[in-house]
């Protein structure tokens, strides 16, 4: 171990240690630790700020998304309504046309019926007349009561409705 007079180094070591611990603290440790601490605080704050910004961005994005979704929904709604309206209009138009056509048809049918009726009546008259004439010619004489005969044939003909 070679222990020389111990007070020598006790003295110098204590002296140098105290002097240099003081100098190092003043010139080095304190300012460095302060600077490091400040930097750490700044970093911490920056990280927090970034986190906050990130959250805000996320919120904003969510809001945008929501807005977009809503717009899309509204568009769908409008489109759907338009389509319904179109369908309704078409359907209405169609039913209207149908009605008009059927009315027209009914009218026409009635007219035809009336015409037919008239024609038939006329035909009956003529048939009766012709029949009588034919009968007269065949028999060679006129029926005494011509009027009565025509009436009779007519009656038979109407019983024999042609269609």
């Amino acid at each position: 171990m070679n222990l020389t007079s111990p007070e020598t180094l006790v003295f110098w070591m204590t002296l140098f240690f105290l002097i240099f611990a003081y100098l190092l603290t003043k010139l080095g440790w304190k300012p460095i630790l302060t600077a490091v601490k400040e930097r750490e605080k700044a970093i911490e704050e920056a990280v927090k700020e970034a986190e906050r910004t990130r959250q805000e961005m996320a919120k904003l994005k969510a809001e945008n998304e929501e807005l977009l979704q809503q717009a899309r929904r509204e568009r769908e709604e409008i489109l759907r309504e338009a389509r319904e309206l179109k369908d309704k209009i078409i359907a209405e138009a169609r039913s209207e046309a149908e009605k008009v056509r059927s009315e027209e048809l009914a009218k026409t049918r009635k007219l035809i019926e009336a015409e037919k009726e008239a024609v038939l009546k006329d035909l009956q008259n003529q048939v009766a007349t012709i029949s009588l004439e034919i009968a007269e010619k065949v028999l060679g004489e006129q029926f005494a009561d011509r009027e009565k005969q025509v009436e009779y044939i007519k009656k038979n003909l109407s019983a024999l409705k042609l269609n």
Partner: peptide, 22 residues
Amino acid sequence: DFSFTRNALAILFVFLILLVLI
């Protein structure tokens, strides 16, 4: 004995290097 011995010099030397580094 408070002589400025070799080790006292060495201690001073180490502290001076440390001070310069810091």
